[in-house]
Design a protein around this nucleic acid. Sequence first.
DNA 1: GTTGAGCGC
Length: 96
Amino acid sequence: MNIYVANIPWKASEDQLKDLFAQYGEVTSAKIIMDKVTQRSRGFGFVEMGDDNSGRTAIAELNGRDFLGKSLVVNEARPREERPARSGGFRRNDFN
DNA sequence: GTTGAGCGC
């Protein structure tokens, strides 16, 4: 279950985020997105949970909840940009 | 040492 977490305070770390979600289920991995150049916290991150049910529970319980003084925004994450290597599949002009 | 809408490489 991929979960998108926004409105994260800049003082928060991945461990705190993982610990926060671990209360509602097994957290496979927690990651806070940092800036590419300055490596500073962008204020949002992603949490992956083992159980989809626990993930939904964590979303329902942590969405809008206070976290280090900021109101968290928790939602289901969108599928990441897939990195097409050399997938022998369809091409965009195969319709011709 | 700063900032606060938004989706990661």
